[in-house]
């Protein structure tokens, strides 16, 4: 479920990035790469788990499913926080830099 949640986040971000391309002022491309990286890593985890438990991988216990969904939502939120920090540091609109220049 964590893989699925992250995968959906990656797909949605990629669609938003493509919709606004070639302009990427909000750095949505970076956010989509963060989610894609995580989704691919969880895919590797899923492959390893599938090899060991086979078809049982697709029938998780409801409590496990709920916990994974909860984790997935936290992961999406954390990805957004990382992106927000990156956005504010890079400041592509130059708004924060402008604030400091005004004060000088």
């Amino acid at each position: 479920m964590t893989l699925l949640t992250t995968l959906f986040a990656a797909i949605i971000c990629t669609i938003i990035w493509y919709k606004n391309a070639p302009s990427d002022k909000m750095k949505v491309g970076v956010l989509s790469l963060i989610y894609w990286g995580a989704a691919l890593m969880w895919l590797a985890d899923a492959i390893i788990e599938y090899i060991s438990v086979k078809a049982d991988y697709f029938t998780p216990a409801p409590a496990e499913l709920l916990n994974d969904l909860y984790l997935g939502l936290y992961v999406v939120a954390l990805g957004l926080v990382i992106w927000l920090i990156y956005l504010l540091i890079k400041d592509p609109k130059g708004f924060i830099k402008g604030l400091f220049h005004k004060e000088e």
Partner: peptide, 20 residues
Amino acid sequence: GWLNNMLWGGSALLIFEHIW
């Protein structure tokens, strides 16, 4: 840079999962 973003971003989220 695309590879770096995927590796750093993915690793950060994966570390969070391991903490969880």
